[in-house]
Design a protein around this nucleic acid. Structure first.
Lengths: 221, 221
DNA sequence: CTTTTCGAAATGGTATACCAGAATCATGCC
DNA sequence: GGCATGATTCTGGTATACCATTTCGAAAAG
C-alpha cells in the first residue's frame, strides 16, 4: 500500500496486486464490474494476464466470478464477513498455540521489536501504516508456528478481510486495548504460555468481531 | 471418480476436474511435469483453458507452479502433509462444534442416513466408494455448521489431502474404529453435545495423523 | 404511454500466433 | 576423457483475433 502508480505491471501477480490495492482502498467499490477489456487497456496490458489476475483475486475472495458475465468486486454481507472472521479466529488461535511451541528466539525478538514499533508509532504515525504493521505482526506470529499451510490459509483470510478490518479499525481505534493485547501476546510468546496467548488473542479477536458488527450496523459497504 | 473418458472438456472447471482425477488416481504421478501443450492436445482443448485449469489445481495445492517452468504435480513431504492435516483438524473440529449448534433436523437426518449407508456398504462395497462416502460425511458435517467460508476452506483441504488420505486408508482400514467414530459423531450431533462431538472427531483425526505418518514411514510417494 | 421485440454493441470464452527465457545436447577446448 | 560453451529446441508468458452469449436501447405494436 505504498507505490503510487508503477509502470505497466507485467506479471499477473503484479496486476493482481494493483487491482487488489484499488479494491481495498475503495477505488473499485464493492459491486462494481471488473471488465476485462477496460482494465486491460487501462493498465496497458493484454486481456490474458489480466484475466489471470482476476482469477487470483477471485480465489482470494475479493471478486466474485459469474459465468458469461463480468466479475464483480466482492460485497460480502454482514453474516458472510462474520463467518470469515470466525474462521480467521480459529486459524489465528491455532497459529498462536503453534508459535508458543515452535517459535525461535529470533522470531520472538522480531515480533517483540515490531510490537514496540507499533506502540511507538501509534500516536503520531500514519494510521494506514500502523494498521499494516498490526496486520504484519499477526502474520509473523502465525508464521512463527512453522506450519506453512496454516500461514498460507491465514494469509488468504487476512487479505480477504483487509478492507473490512481497515474500515472497522479507522472508525474507532481502541488503541489502548489493542496495544495491551499486543503486549500480552508478546509476553505470552516469550514465556511460551499457550493459555495466556490464547486469552490475549481471543480478546483481540473478540474486538475484531465487535468492530465488524458495528461496521455493518452503521451501514458499512 | 466414475466417468471413464468423457468427451472433450470445454470449460476450465471440467478440464481441472479431469486432471484432478488423473492426479489423485496416480495416472499423473507426483513430481511429473504438467506441460501445457501436451495436455492441451491430449484433451483436445486449447492452451488457454488448460492453463486456467492448471491454475485452479495450483490453488487447490495439487500442482505447484514454477516461474517460467513447467508446473509439477505436487509431491508433499511428510512434514508438509502433517501440517495440512493439522489445519484440517482445526477446521473440522470447528465445523463439528458449529454443526452441533446450527445443524437443522433435516441435515442431521441426512448425515445419520449416510452413516448407516457407510456402515452397511463397508464390508462388501467398493473401497473407493466407501472412502468417498466417508469423506462426504465429513463434508456434510462441516456444511451443517452453516459457515460458508469454513465449508469452502475445509473442502480445499480435503481435496488437497485426498490422495494421501486415500492411499493411507487403503493400507489398513481400521474399519471398526472408524465406524465407531462415525456413530459417535452422529450421536453427538443429534444430542448437540459439542464435547462428545469434539472427542469423537479428535479420535478420528488422530487416526488420520497416524495413517499419514505410517504412509510416509513406509516410503509413500 | 407502456410493453414487447428485434438487432446492434458489448463482453466473456476460446483458439492461435508470437516472444523470451530455460533446458538440453552437440561441439570444441583444456 | 572431462568440462565449459554455444546453438537448437522446448516451454511458459503474452498479445491478438475470433466466436457465442448476453445486454440494452430503439422502434414498433398494443
Amino acid at each position: 500500500m505504498s507505490d503510487p502508480a508503477p509502470g505497466p505491471a507485467t506479471f499477473p501477480a503484479a496486476i493482481a496486486a494493483r487491482l487488489r490495492r484499488e479494491i481495498l482502498t475503495g477505488a473499485l467499490p464493492p459491486g462494481s464490474p471488473v471488465k476485462e477489456r477496460d482494465h486491460a487497456e487501462r493498465l496497458g496490458v493484454s486481456r490474458t494476464p489480466l484475466r489471470e489476475a482476476v482469477r487470483i483475486l477471485a480465489k482470494e475472495g475479493l471478486v466474485t466470478l459469474r459465468p458469461l458475465r463480468s466479475p464483480l468486486v466482492a460485497d460480502p454481507t454482514r453474516d458472510e464477513a462474520l463467518d470469515e472472521v470466525a474462521v480467521l479466529r480459529q486459524l489465528e488461535l491455532f497459529g498462536g498455540e503453534l508459535a508458543c511451541r515452535n517459535a525461535t528466539a529470533e522470531e520472538i525478538a522480531v515480533i517483540a521489536r515490531l510490537s514496540e514499533t507499533v506502540e511507538r508509532d501509534h500516536a503520531g504515525g500514519d494510521p494506514v501504516e500502523v494498521f499494516d504493521l498490526d496486520m504484519q505482526m499477526h502474520r509473523l506470529i502465525v508464521a512463527a508456528g512453522h506450519n506453512a499451510a496454516l500461514a498460507r490459509t491465514h494469509g488468504e483470510y487476512l487479505a480477504r478481510l483487509w478492507r473490512i478490518r481497515f474500515m472497522s479499525a479507522r472508525q474507532r481505534t481502541d488503541a489502548d486495548r489493542v496495544l495491551a493485547d499486543h503486549r500480552g501476546m508478546v509476553a505470552a510468546l516469550a514465556a511460551r504460555d499457550t493459555g495466556a496467548m490464547r486469552r490475549h488473542m481471543e480478546s483481540h479477536l473478540d474486538a475484531l468481531v465487535r468492530n465488524v458488527e458495528r461496521h455493518f450496523a452503521e451501514g458499512g459497504a
